[in-house]
Amino acid sequence: MKRIDCLQAIYPRLEDCAVVTIMGAVAAELYSLGHRPNFFYLEHAMGLASSIGLGIALARPDCKVVVLDGDGSVLMNLGGLTTLARYAPRNLVHLVFDNQVLLSVGGGAPGGHQWFTTATSTGTDLAAVARGAGIRRAQLVEDLDDFTEAALDAIRGDELACVVARVEAEMPASFHMDVHMLENRFEFPRALQRIQAKTATGGRT
């Protein structure tokens, strides 16, 4: 399963969501499908994408929040999974792309990213970790049909959900992103306000 195909499968459903994505390959591939101002690309602070998503979800219960995370980032903030579970906002969906490596930092190294494996390559099961943290709806998916069904169900649903997708460790076609971090930082809250206006008027804006 390729990450870009997963992103493509859910892309149309992200239009009215607050989307927070980690840096690197996930950010670049989401951007390559077409930037939208309701996408926030966290270009550093590994591990905190899910915490940002939790903050939005608690502050804006009317707004569906989708966090696009990765194994390396989740492993840096495993405690955050327990905090997600503790408050379990019904409007939060946590999608984790598990490629078993720190792809974006390791790709340029001699021998490639094979030297930059994470603990999921030696048996850590992030869906099981999420369930153990107390997220009742957490599952591992291994093919695109299962991912699409699980992710779209989660986005439609009314319950905190975590979907861990086992994907190939493949570099994005390009890391090009023509949106500055600060531009993105200021357009994102405005986009959230527009989602609010749309919700308030029942979609007539």
Binding site: A18, V20, F40, A45, G47, L48, A49, S50, S51, I52, G53, L54, G55, I56, A57, L58, A59, R60, C63, N77, G79, G80, T82, T83, R86, Y87, F188, P189, L192, Q193
Partner: peptide
């Protein structure tokens, strides 16, 4: 008041960032 009890303090930086994006003071 929304109280978020953390596992580790750094999470709070992310949570406050998200809440700020959504228009709340923290």
């Amino acid at each position: 008041m929304i109280l978020v009890r953390l596992a580790k303090e750094e999470e709070g930086i992310g949570i406050s960032t998200g809440a700020h994006f959504a228009g709340l003071r923290t």
